[in-house]
């Protein structure tokens, strides 16, 4: 019962290219963002929030763009190169930032991403400055495709990647490592007493989240055909956190539900209320936080609990916020 609606939504999304071909690209972009938000959600399990994860989004996007530009670019290698770069940078930065918690964790991530943002604009002759780099359309298994075909393939690729990433992340969070990650939020000292290094646990989550953001960034780069420093700006990092809360930070599904809603609201607000789209988004966010802080998926869970009774003990991601856990 509980899974009927999600399954229906996945099905509905899967047939979108047939029913509403013009929303196909919008959905691809939403998946790209959803993947990045998934990275944020991993960190939120540890109670940490990064206001700089656009860094990994951008690193991956720029690497993907360079690969596509200089080596002709095959879709798979382009994406892989981007993700690998994001994971490596995530590891290097992660080694430093996992020593910090809460505001300082958020601020350090912000600082690193802002430095990268400034560098993207500074190294104009390499990065194209604010005009960005154009990303030539990659080939798919050696085939050069028209835009229409490519976008359809990209859409289904993004859908499959998102499902895989959501499943993988869910498994990770349900694993012992994932449980230790959540223990950082609830009681880090106890974790240390158990002989577990909180830092290396957080580092594993951090690298995973960087890689997920990277996957989203590389996907965004090939879908958009351009990368700009805007990919690394702090407002985008804020947007990821925004979407995570909107969708529901407790579950992996929240990332994608949030991204779909966010992109929809943003696009239509920009189209039909072009003067006040920021205000519309801000109000949506306020309403969600004040009336449903567990996000859209949280509301759905609550609705289902009421309709069919409480669920069986749930797996990893869907932890409810324990009372008193908040500071």
């Amino acid at each position: 019962m509980r899974s009927i609606l999600p399954a229906l939504i996945v099905l509905l999304v899967a047939v979108t290219p047939v029913l509403a071909p013009t929303s196909q690209v919008l959905l691809t972009l939403a998946f790209a963002k959803g993947l990045a938000v998934l990275g944020i959600i991993v960190l939120l399990q540890a109670g940490q929030v990064s206001f700089g994860h656009a860094l990994y989004f951008a690193v991956s996007a720029y690497v993907a763009a360079s690969v596509a530009r200089s080596f002709g670019g095959e879709l798979v290698t382009t994406l892989l190169a981007g993700v690998a770069a994001a994971a490596v940078v995530g590891l290097v930065v992660g080694v430093f930032v996992v020593r910090y918690r809460y505001i300082f964790f958020a601020m350090l991530n912000l600082a690193v991403s802002m430095i990268f943002f400034a560098l993207l604009e500074k190294f104009y002759y390499v990065t194209g400055g604010s005009d960005g780099l154009q990303v030539p359309r990659p080939t798919v298994v050696g085939l050069t495709l028209e835009r229409g075909e490519f976008e359809t393939i990209l859409f289904y690729g993004a859908l499959v990647l998102s499902l895989l990433a959501a499943w993988g992340t869910h498994r990770y969070l349900a694993s012992p490592l994932g449980n230790m990650l959540r223990a950082i939020k609830t009681n880090e000292v106890r974790l240390e007493y158990l002989g577990v290094s909180a830092r290396s646990t957080l580092l594993s989550g951090y690298v995973l989240s960087a890689a997920l953001c990277g996957l989203g960034g590389a996907l965004m780069a090939v879908a958009q055909g351009i990368v700009t420093p805007e990919y690394a700006y702090w407002v985008r990092s804020g947007e990821f956190v925004f979407i995570a809360i909107l969708g529901g930070s407790g579950s992996v599904a929240g990332a994608f539900v949030g991204a779909l809603i966010y992109e929809g609201v943003r696009t239509y607000a920009a189209a039909f209320a072009s003067d006040i789209w920021q205000m519309v988004l801000g109000i949506v966010l306020l309403v969600i936080i004040i009336f449903g802080p567990s996000g859209v998926t949280g509301l759905y869970q609550r609705l289902m609990d009421r309709l069919v009774g409480p669920a069986r003990p749930r797996g990893a991601g869907d932890s409810e916020r324990a009372p008193g856990a908040a500071e």
Partner: peptide, 20 residues
């Protein structure tokens, strides 16, 4: 009483509204 991240996001929302 909410989590830190929610508090920051509320002020982020206020920021977006005030921009417009």
């Amino acid at each position: 009483d909410m989590e830190e991240v929610l508090q920051i996001l509320v002020t982020f929302a206020v920021f977006m509204i005030l921009e417009d």
